[in-house]
């Protein structure tokens, strides 16, 4: 009889990597590493001007782009990814929403000529067209992620904390 392992066992020992993994994916070199700790905010407003004034920062215009650590994810949604220690003024009573989500996600970095191929194993977007300055929510297989194209051949990936070990190993698996 074929023995089916109980579901609870699957993934039991997956832990988030703490040191970079380097190698090649489909022959192209790539390094997967944990990103530096960041400060994260979910920022929402119908009127970008109100939000921009409240936080004292410029906001990117186009959905799917990032600028100065803030990405526009949707028509009324921005996401700030700022260096550790950064602060944002919090206002009350205005038609906007600021929610700090620093601990909600962790960041991974993929760099090298194989970075797009590594992500493309599970992300259905055409990553060759996700040029530096682009940022979007999407999926890696069944896991929701954000991809920020930081520079040529360099992507920052945001993933919710509990999915991060799986994602790390799913990415690392192909790096040989």
């Amino acid at each position: 009889m074929l023995e089916i392992a109980p579901l609870a066992v699957a993934g039991i020992d997956l832990t988030l990597g703490t040191t970079p993994v380097s190698g090649t994916v489909y022959g192209h070199s790539v390094t997967l590493s944990p990103a530096a700790p960041m400060v994260r905010w979910s920022l929402r407003a119908k009127d970008a001007g109100v939000l921009s004034a409240a936080i004292g920062r410029a906001l990117p215009d186009a959905i799917g782009t990032h600028h100065d650590g803030i990405a526009r994810l949707g028509p009324d949604e921005w996401y700030a990814l700022l260096p550790e220690g950064s602060t944002l003024p919090v206002v009350a009573g205005q038609p906007l929403s600021q929610v700090e989500v620093t601990a909600r996600a962790v960041g991974l970095t993929l760099t090298g000529p194989g970075a797009a191929a590594a992500l493309g194993r599970g992300c259905p977007l055409d990553l060759a067209r996700l040029t530096p300055g682009r940022a979007t929510r999407t999926v890696f297989e069944t896991v929701e992620i954000q991809i920020w194209a930081l520079a040529p051949e360099t992507f920052h990936v945001e993933v919710w904390r509990s999915f991060a070990p799986w994602l790390w190993h799913a990415l690392a698996e192909a790096i040989v």
Partner: peptide, 13 residues
Amino acid sequence: GHHKDALFQPVRK
């Protein structure tokens, strides 16, 4: 594809 053994599906912890 990837969804086998330890990577069968994400187990959230």
